[in-house]
């Protein structure tokens, strides 16, 4: 379990990193927190020629917070992001609920939010949160900077819209409307494991009625699954109305695409999908 040989580079300027990516293309790999990349290297499941360690590029450490939302630079660790969200937005925010489920404390001190997005594991929490909150991924390459909506960024299992010469330099989570309620649940055998199935959501509730909402499952398909029809079913319904909830559950079971999974059958996952929906709707009821 030792990596195949690679060249190691650790540029201190963003431009240096970008030049290396342009030069080496798909033979380069970006090293952020290393919490996913190092095991992949050790198992020789990936064997890049050049490792571009971005940890010395100081500007990438920035955490931004303002009226337009939150921005995490590429080197913001899960733990720092969690602290920032809790302190600056509040513990009810979706990210504050989701981040404690990402791995374990030690890993959260190294792994980065952007690394998790760049990796695009279908069972990971943060890609689903990014899609749910309609975050924008900031990509920078030789040809400049572009902003890709999260929903368009995730393309499949470990596949994203990032081209090989681009770096994820940050992610922007837009501010949510005041009064927005969040619901987040996941099912895992052990705390800190990747989810068997999870659900990230927000809702705006007016007088007990769902004015608007968004639901994104993870661990179901090959990328985060936006349950559009299910959300529509809930809209206009009352939170305490069992019939609305039952209709929505029904719809979720029908709407969700479940990719084959060696361990958990499709029937089980569909069953979970309904249960998770119940739980997030219940969370909307208590929140705010």
């Amino acid at each position: 379990m030792k990596p195949a040989p690679f060249a190691y580079t650790a540029p201190t300027e963003l431009e240096g990193a970008l030049a290396l990516l342009r030069e080496h293309g798909d033979e380069a790999a970006v090293l952020a927190g290393g919490q996913s990349l190092m095991p992949l290297l050790a198992l020789r499941m990936t064997a890049p020629k050049v490792l571009v360690d971005i940890n010395r590029i100081e500007p990438l450490r920035a955490v931004g917070h303002g009226g337009d939302g939150l921005r995490f630079g590429a080197l913001v660790r899960h733990a720092e992001a969690l602290r920032a969200v809790r302190d600056q937005v509040g513990p009810a925010h979706l990210l504050a609920q989701a981040l404690p489920h990402v791995a374990h404390q030690a890993i959260r001190h190294r792994g980065t939010v952007c690394g998790s997005l760049a990796l695009a594991d279908p069972a990971a929490e943060l890609p689903a949160c990014a899609v749910c909150l309609e975050a924008e991924i900031e990509l920078q390459g030789a040809s400049g900077r572009r902003f890709v909506p999260a929903d368009a960024f995730f393309e499949g299992v470990y596949a994203t819209a990032r081209s090989v010469d681009e770096l994820v330099v940050g992610v922007r989570f837009p501010a949510t409307a005041p009064g927005t309620r969040f619901g987040f649940v996941e099912v895992a055998r052990r705390h800190g494991d990747y989810a068997i199935l999870g659900l990230a959501s927000w809702a705006r509730v007016v007088d007990g009625e769902v004015a608007d909402c968004r639901l994104v499952y993870f661990g179901a398909d090959e990328r985060p699954s936006v349950a559009t029809r299910t959300a529509r079913t809930l809209r206009g319904g009352r939170l305490d109305d069992p019939a609305t909830r039952a209709r929505a559950k029904e719809c979720a079971l029908d709407e969700l695409t479940i990719a084959p999974d060696a361990t958990y059958g499709e029937g089980y996952k569909r069953r979970l999908a309904g249960a998770l929906l119940e739980r997030v709707v219940a969370q909307w009821g208590v929140a705010g």
Binding site: R189, I196, G265, E266, Y268, R271
Partner: peptide, 16 residues
């Protein structure tokens, strides 16, 4: 005792 096994038993059927 995996969760699918337990859930199926709870629902009185075989695991899905």
């Amino acid at each position: 005792l995996t969760p699918p096994l337990v859930l199926a038993a709870l629902e009185g059927g075989s695991s899905g």
